[in-house]
Every structure is written in structure tokens, then in C-alpha cells.
Amino acid sequence: MSDQVTTNNSLKPIGAEQENLDMHDAPNVMNPEHVAHHIVSPVVYLMIFGILMVGTALTAGMAYVPLGPFNAPVALAIACTKAVFVVLFFMHVKYSSKLVKLTVSAGVFTFLVLCMMSLLDYVSRAWGRW
């Protein structure tokens, strides 16, 4: 599980000796929920910042292009992409344990359950008006 961090060459941390801040301990390392602490380099942060800025410009620009019913999906798609970049890199989820990844997905999943199960009522309450 720990080599998944080191094999990622494109995003190598600035100094290999700083890759892990903590002293490893046996009972924790054998925990499948454990993953080594990874420092994301400022270069990556800067790249993500750039992507987010491009995304922001794109959202604002696309809103002025008439796409009919597709304006909302496009806006949401851009927003989701931006959010994924923030979650993966700024919030380090890419370098986190499966447990954290599962936690994030659980949140999204439960929110979707709230939406879908409520929409079940609203959509079928007035067929055709949606």
C-alpha cells in the first residue's frame, strides 16, 4: 500500500527525505487503513490553482453561450471537475488511505440518496411537469 505513493513519479515531493513526517510504528503500519504521510509540492498546488482559475473563467464564459437545456449540465460538470481537483490535491485525498476515500464517497452517496429518493416523490407527483 505504501508503494502506491512512491510510484507516482510525476508528482514527486520536493525532497524525498521529507516524504514521511512521522515515525512508522508496527501496529499502525499493519493496519490496512494506514497510508504514509505525503507532502504535495507547491508546483502541484500551483498547477491545480491554474486549473481552477481556467475552470472559473470557463464557467463564467459558458453561461453567456446559449446552449438551451445544456447550460445547467455544463455548469455542473465544470463545478464538479473543479471540486474533484480540490478534493484530490488540495485536500490530499489522492494520497490518503482507502478509508478517507470511502468517507468522501459515503458523503456524496448519502447526498444523492437524499436527492433521488425525494425526487421520486416530486417527479411522480406531477408527471410531465419536470
Partner: peptide, 9 residues
């Protein structure tokens, strides 16, 4: 906590 790493996680 047994270790600092456990605490951080």
C-alpha cells in the same frame, strides 16, 4: 494514542 502517527490519522 500509541504513536504520533496513529494520532495524526
Amino acid at each position: 494514542f500509541e504513536t504520533a502517527e496513529q494520532q495524526r490519522e
